[in-house]
Simulated assay, not measured.
Amino acid sequence: MLSFTLNGEKTTFDGDPDTPLLWVIRDSKQLTGTKYGCGIAQCGACTVHVNGMSKRACVTPISTCEGSQVTTIESVEGREAKAVQAAWKSLDVPQCGYCQSGQIMSAVALLKQKPSPSDEDIDNAMDGNICRCATYQRIRQAIHDAAKDMEASA
């Protein structure tokens, strides 16, 4: 039996330790905000935070999460999350929205590490988060806007 914290609550998983974290989150824990996209860690739709770092849940075996803090889009919080969510709404970033939970989780992790990211920082952090609607310019602008809002409220 594996133990970890999911969205602030201690939880366990009593199944195959090679089960991808994504399926534990979606199927076992019934949290559907984290999406399945490609299954090979190339699209970013399944991005979650494990101990504060972005991880692709589709290729992360649950066994590697023993004792870890796992945060999904349903529970992401803090000033970075609030700033990103506000900027996303303000700029109307999503079109279809399918990739957005992964985009937001990556953006929040970036701002926690670099509160004033450059375009290059954003490109590097968001690399591998695919948006089929191609809202990349709005995503970049939203991250810059979120950083400015955080700076202004500091």
Rank of each mutant, 00 (worst) to 15 (best):
L2I: 15
L2M: 12
L2G: 07
F4I: 11
F4H: 00
T5C: 06
K10S: 15
T12P: 00
F13T: 13
F13M: 02
D16G: 06
T19S: 13
P20T: 06
W23R: 02
V24H: 04
V24Y: 13
V24T: 13
R26M: 10
D27A: 11
S28E: 14
Q30A: 12
L31A: 07
T32V: 11
T32K: 08
G33D: 04
G33F: 02
K35Q: 11
Y36S: 05
I40F: 12
I40A: 13
A41V: 10
Q42I: 11
C43L: 02
T47M: 08
T47Y: 02
T47F: 00
V48D: 03
V48N: 02
H49T: 01
H49V: 03
V50H: 12
G52N: 03
M53K: 15
K55L: 00
C58D: 08
V59P: 05
T60S: 09
I62C: 01
S63T: 03
S63G: 05
T64N: 01
C65E: 00
C65T: 15
G67T: 10
G67V: 09
G67W: 07
G67L: 04
G67R: 06
V70P: 11
S75G: 15
V76T: 08
E77N: 14
G78Y: 02
R79D: 14
R79M: 05
E80G: 09
E80V: 00
A81C: 02
A83Q: 01
Q85H: 11
A86W: 03
A86K: 15
D92I: 01
P94E: 04
P94D: 02
Q95D: 07
Q95R: 00
G97I: 09
G102M: 13
G102P: 11
Q103A: 11
I104F: 00
I104T: 14
M105Y: 02
A107M: 04
A109I: 04
A109S: 15
L111R: 12
P115Y: 03
S116F: 12
S116R: 15
E120N: 13
D121T: 08
I122T: 10
D123I: 03
N124A: 14
N124G: 05
A125R: 01
D127H: 10
D127R: 08
D127L: 09
N129Q: 10
N129C: 08
N129I: 13
C131P: 08
C131E: 05
C131A: 13
C131N: 09
C133N: 10
C133Y: 09
C133A: 04
Y136S: 09
Q137G: 01
Q137I: 12
Q137E: 07
Q137Y: 02
R138N: 06
I139C: 13
R140M: 01
R140P: 00
A142W: 07
A142V: 03
A142E: 03
H144S: 06
H144E: 07
H144I: 14
D145L: 15
D145M: 14
A146I: 07
D149Q: 12
E151S: 10
A152G: 11
A152P: 01
A154R: 15
